[in-house]
Simulated assay, not measured.
Amino acid sequence: MQRKKWIALIIVMAVLFAGLIVEGFTGTPEDLANHPGYAWEENVVSGTGNAKIIQLFVNGVISGERNAAGIPTNTEILREQLRYAEEDENVKALVLRIDSPGGEVVATDEIYNRLLRFKQVRNIPIVVSMGSTAASGGYYLATAADTIFANPNTLTGSLGVIFNLVNYSEAANKLGIHQYAIKSGRFKDIGSPTRPVTAQEQQIFQTLVNESYHKFVDVIVKGRNLSRERVLEIADGRVYSGEQAKQLGLIDKFGDLEEATQHALSLSGEQTATVVRYSDQISFSKLLFSMKQHWSNPDPLGLSRILDRHSTHRLLYQFIPGES
């Protein structure tokens, strides 16, 4: 019994000591890959040889906003993985698996430009493999590829921009709730949910949407070698199946992740290569860091994010059923 008490005490002291170390981590996302709790390790999927084909993944909504626990976003992780791959001279091709409805305009565009930089710096092929959904911002990222694979049933398209505004002024009036905005300019409270949107304000928002939409059209024209007139015809916000997308020239081939990887190997010029995925190393410090963030999270269920979904105005390259 006494021995068990000593073991328990040692574990507690180790946890507290390591917690102090983790507490001291205040680095930026760029430091993430070098942090001992989040260093990347390579997992071999298949193949042999020094040459590598890297498989990276874009899953879920593309967002640059960390949750209440401070967990790195999928865009931060992907950016760090791209940096890691860029510094590895043995990487000869990149396969990007996309299963995403898209997301924030800025976060999507940042990853897109990071993919273009990767191609420019390393001069190696990028092949995209679409999963169940690669719509809106998910397709935006796909345009950076040399070849796009999809399943005939993949949900893609939704080429466009959406900007949501929620208005509850009528409900507020019925409840006797009034908000008075003391503002420095006539448009400082633009988009306020407590009053109707004016025609001028709607035009301002429409201008922002149009700018992002034309940027989306530009990347499709550039990435898919389609005429601008043709892209404008098909980029009306509707979703397409993989079958329809192939007929429209939005994708190149049908196939799964393995077939996309084999195609990447053929584009690389290598005879053989090791297919690799990155994962963050499982370490004691990482475990403590995650536990610390969870314990310090004032909203572990993420309810505030659900409630605030429409409270923060964002331009979105995102497929949202019922809204787009």
Rank of each mutant, 00 (worst) to 15 (best):
A8W: 00
I10D: 05
F17P: 02
T26L: 13
D31A: 06
L32H: 07
H35T: 04
H35A: 10
P36R: 08
T48G: 05
T48H: 09
N50C: 01
N59W: 11
N59A: 11
G64A: 10
G64I: 03
Q81E: 15
E86P: 02
E87P: 00
E89R: 03
D99F: 09
G103E: 01
T108L: 03
I111A: 02
Q120I: 14
V121G: 07
G131L: 09
S132N: 14
A134L: 03
Y140W: 14
T143N: 07
A144M: 04
I148W: 08
A150Q: 12
N153S: 09
N153F: 08
T156K: 05
T156C: 07
L159V: 06
L159I: 14
G160R: 04
N173F: 12
K174D: 14
L175K: 15
Q179A: 14
A181P: 13
I182M: 12
R186M: 11
F187Y: 15
K188L: 13
S192V: 09
P196E: 06
T198F: 05
F205K: 07
L208V: 13
D218F: 10
N225P: 03
L226M: 06
V231A: 13
E243Q: 15
Q244V: 11
Q244E: 15
Q244Y: 10
K246H: 09
E258S: 04
Q262E: 07
L267D: 01
S268W: 00
T274R: 02
V275Q: 00
F284R: 01
K286R: 15
H294R: 13
W295K: 14
R305M: 14
I306N: 08
D308C: 05
R314T: 07
L316G: 05
